[in-house]
């Protein structure tokens, strides 16, 4: 299955997110911006939860391309130590068990399994995977 966009994941198994490292300042961002100022920089797979919320209504389409049927999901900012704090879905965790500081690892989820051409997008889950 293809990723939601080119240039987000490395080809490794398991994949890493590709951030961008500013060639002058060393500042790391995600995703890697176009242009010459940033070079691709694979991000560490493990981090800790910096903040989060729960999306409790279906976003408008466009631009949202998720399933018509809606169930609330968690959105987090995940701190990758010394690199950047990346925004990502949370998966494999109950909404009432999410805590700031909890250890997380990168995974991928299918944005809309019912789509004609389903795509993978980035998410984090509690370290060690599903309970």
């Amino acid at each position: 299955m293809r990723a939601i966009a080119e240039g987000l994941f490395t080809d490794e198994t398991p994949p890493r997110l590709i951030g961008g490292r500013n060639r002058e300042t060393g500042r790391i961002v995600f995703p890697c911006p176009e242009g010459a100022d940033f070079e691709p920089h694979p991000l560490r797979r493990e981090g800790t939860l910096w903040s989060y919320t729960v999306q409790r209504y279906r976003p408008k389409s466009p631009p949202y391309a998720g399933p018509e049927a809606f169930a609330p999901w968690a959105v987090a900012y995940v701190e990758l130590a010394g690199e950047t704090i990346v925004e990502a879905r949370l998966t494999n965790v109950a909404l009432d068990e999410i805590r700031i500081g909890m250890p997380l690892e990168l995974t991928q989820i299918v944005l809309d399994p019912e789509a004609a051409e389903p795509v993978l997008t980035h998410a984090f889950q509690p370290t060690g995977g599903a309970a």
Binding site: I4, W50, S51, Y52, T53, V54, Q55, P59, P62, P63, Y64, A65, G66, W73, V75, A76, Y77, E87, R89, I100, L111, T121
Partner: peptide, 18 residues
């Protein structure tokens, strides 16, 4: 936007949660 992040309320909520 396709993945559902283009939502102002997510930011406001995550900012206050922190």
């Amino acid at each position: 936007g396709e993945a559902g992040y283009m939502i102002t309320t997510q930011f406001f909520a995550a900012k206050i949660t922190r």
